[in-house]
Amino acid sequence: MTPDEILDTVAGICLVAGALLCVAAGIALVRFPDVLSRMHAAAKPQVLGLLLVLLGCALRLRTGVDITTLVLVGLFQLATAPVAAHMVGRTAYPHDDIRRDLLITDELAGHIDRIRADRAGEPEETSPVRTA
């Protein structure tokens, strides 16, 4: 096998594995019982799936210009996916749609009012853009 063929094979494996993880994430989105569980599906298998697809593309393309773009896509995905999942989770809690019967323990319930009150008291801390 020439080095090119080996790289192509590895790229193929990465692409298929990444696609499978994305499928699993999709299945989880449909099957999981409530919003919070579904955000797990969006935050993890999907991120690794995308990273594997990017790695596969990088191994197949092998040109500097493309690889730098792929690296950026991966980095921003790693940085933003948890934030997006957190924002959705925070909005969803507390809500009737959360399946409390499936929760083994909920240590947030007793604190949520105080935390939200704290935050309301310092509105400038939560605004995304701060002016100097």
């Binding site: 699993a24 994430a25 989880a28 099957r31 999981f32 569980s37 993890k44 929760l103 083994i104 323990t105």
Partner: peptide
């Protein structure tokens, strides 16, 4: 990722905790 993927295809609803 593998864990969540397995939970997705496994029968039954996953338990969780906060």
């Amino acid at each position: 990722s593998v864990q969540v993927a397995w939970l997705a295809v496994r029968p039954g609803e996953p338990h969780s905790a906060i």
